[in-house]
């Protein structure tokens, strides 16, 4: 892309801006920069300083400096933190992967549709418009073994031969119900994102591949999905970040139980921050999560970069 020579001005080179348009480049980015910086800088610094202090608001507003103690406690002494991280990792890895695959399938089907596509896409999009605070209540009833429709229908259809588990009340399946609800809610997000990506792909390139004798699947694998990668990566990144925040569903479906089998990191952080008001500990936990998400995101972006380099 860098066909236009780079500037030799030191400042502009630091900013990576082409000389001819440096004013426009900076001006365009300024509103977003100012907005994001001004909202996030104080919470970030405040949380950073908090993470090195002990602040237990349940007993007193006094802050004491404790160095790295909070981090050490989170990382070495808190089995519940690791359990919650493990549960969250399950939701992130399995859940998001399923959302991508399912979203891709639905987007491809939709993109092939001639008539009725608006209706289909709108129908599939309804789940994301239902706030988790609402859908949580629906799924709480749906998954209920004694009173819910799901197990009732399963038993009726199988004439009592299949006895389904009590989904939300069994350690082995409680987390799965959260995964399924999340899948229900966010697959449409991936679908629309991918659909938009597919639709903005240049038809010429696809036609060219087709003319060269590539099959539908070959075109898909070699041309369309690589072209889709930037959109796909951002979709996955957003979903990874937001799955780390899975919280309302946990509150409504299982409250983290049975035992700690469905406690997610966002729910555990919420308990520490807003029920225990252990602010220093919460801050440390938040930073550890931030670092994890940054590392994961870096990995994804480097995949994208390598792909681009290979093009």
């Amino acid at each position: 892309m860098a066909t236009i020579p780079r500037t030799d001005n030191w400042f502009l080179r630091r900013l990576n801006v082409q000389r001819r348009h440096w004013k426009a480049a900076l001006l365009f980015v300024l509103p977003a920069f100012v907005m994001l910086l001004s909202i996030t800088i104080y919470p970030l610094i405040r949380t950073l300083t908090l993470s090195f202090t002990k602040l237990e608001l349940a007993v007193s507003p006094r802050e004491t400096f404790v160095g790295l103690d909070n981090f050490v406690r989170v990382l070495t002494g808190d089995a519940r933190f690791w359990n919650a991280m493990g549960n969250t990792a399950f939701l992130v890895v399995v859940g998001v992967a399923l959302q991508v695959v399912l979203g891709m399938v639905l987007a491809l089907l939709a993109s092939e549709m001639r008539r009725g596509r608006t209706v289909w896409v709108t129908l599939f999009l309804i789940p994301i418009m239902i706030a988790p605070v609402v859908s949580g209540f629906q799924f709480r009833v749906i998954f209920n073994d004694t009173f819910g429709p799901l197990n009732y229908i399963i038993r009726q259809l199988s004439a009592g031969l299949i006895s389904p588990p009590a989904w939300t009340a069994t350690s082995g399946t409680a987390l799965l119900t959260i995964l399924i609800t999340d899948l229900w809610q966010w697959t449409p997000f991936m679908m629309l994102l991918i659909l938009a990506g597919l639709e903005s792909q240049s038809q010429e390139i696809i036609e060219a591949a087709r003319v060269d004798g590539a099959s539908y699947w070959q075109t898909l694998w070699r041309v369309r999905i690589p072209l889709l990668l930037p959109v796909l990566i951002i979709g996955v990144l957003i979903r990874v970040m937001d799955t780390f925040k899975t919280f309302d569903l946990v509150v409504l479906l299982t409250a983290g139980g049975p035992g700690s089998s469905s406690e997610t990191i966002a729910y555990y952080t919420y308990l520490n921050g807003f029920k225990f008001f252990s602010m220093g500990y919460t801050a440390a936990m938040a930073f550890i999560q931030l670092i994890v998400i940054i590392v994961v995101s870096r990995v994804f972006l480097s995949i994208q970069k390598r792909q681009r380099g290979a093009d």
Binding site: A58, S171, S261, K275, F276
Partner: peptide, 22 residues
């Protein structure tokens, strides 16, 4: 007493784990 939310949650978690057979 102050900290009630923490004490109660910690006990509830362990009780619940025992109920779940963990």
């Amino acid at each position: 007493i102050p900290g009630s939310a923490q004490y109660t949650d910690a006990l509830d978690l362990e009780v619940n784990r025992a109920l779940a057979g963990e």
